[in-house]
């Protein structure tokens, strides 16, 4: 599906920009046409700008990733994550039945969710990448997402937020009389969307078109490579 969405965004965008170049304007006296290359030129400039931006962003992430993976390693080696994970075990076991309760993936998922709950966006990303990496270790068909991965991704993309720090900052900066009044509504809305994410992922994984392929016999052929 991401293939179709990506292609659609790209091709529809280019077609719309091309059409804009005709410069058709509807007036009361009918329509007039003022062709110009400007929309396509602007689009091309924006594409190069954004491609460059993607790489700057990734390099900007190196330091933060290193920092968090370093701290996570200490938390992992000291057994801290296991302590936290043990407390949340009943919920996690229900959410991710395929993952063994004491697997490192459980701890990583909990840490990533804790970070995103506090609005620590930059901290949550490396923790989340670590979590999906751990889930991949349990995956028998490496290019296909497991049920646990789909549940985890649906939950993290629905954003379990308690403190939307950036938004509060923007509201305060633009002179709101009560910048934090949105915290309550945000918790409710995020609760609704996360509940829907869990229910949908559990329901959809039962549909025939989303079934995992049979593993028996396939594992051997993968390992031969």
């Amino acid at each position: 599906m991401i293939n179709i969405v990506w292609l659609a965004l790209l091709s529809i965008g280019i077609l719309v920009a091309g059409f804009s170049c005709l410069g058709i304007e509807i007036t009361s006296a009918g329509w007039i046409m003022e062709p110009s290359w400007e929309p396509l030129m602007n689009m091309t400039n924006s594409v190069f700008e954004e491609a460059k931006h993607a790489v700057t962003l990734a390099f900007g992430l190196v330091g933060i990733m290193a920092l968090w993976l370093g701290i996570m390693k200490i938390a992992e080696k000291s057994g801290l994550i296991n302590v936290i994970a043990r407390g949340l075990k009943p919920i996690m076991v229900w959410l991710f039945p395929e993952v063994p309760a004491d697997h490192p993936a459980m701890g990583s998922i909990i840490m990533a969710m804790a970070a995103s709950m506090l609005g620590l966006g930059n901290a949550a990303t490396p923790l989340g990448l670590k979590a999906i990496g751990e889930l991949q270790k349990l995956n028998k068909i490496k290019d296909t997402a497991t049920n646990a991965m789909c549940t985890y991704m649906a939950m993290s993309t629905s954003s379990v937020t308690i403190i939307p720090a950036t938004i509060i900052g923007i509201r305060a900066a633009s002179g709101s009389t009560n910048p934090t009044e949105i915290i309550g509504p945000v918790i409710v809305a995020t609760g609704v969307s996360t509940t829907v994410a869990i229910i949908m992922s559990k329901l959809l994984q039962k549909l025939p078109r989303y079934q995992l392929p049979k593993v028996d016999g396939v594992v051997e052929t993968i390992e031969e490579n």
Binding site: M1, G133, A154, A197, Q205
Partner: peptide, 18 residues
């Protein structure tokens, strides 16, 4: 980051939640 290409129901579930 883990080279998973077949994402199954992850996108539909996530978009419904959105």
């Amino acid at each position: 980051s883990v080279s998973v290409r077949k994402t199954r129901h992850a996108l539909p579930a996530a978009l419904t939640a959105d």
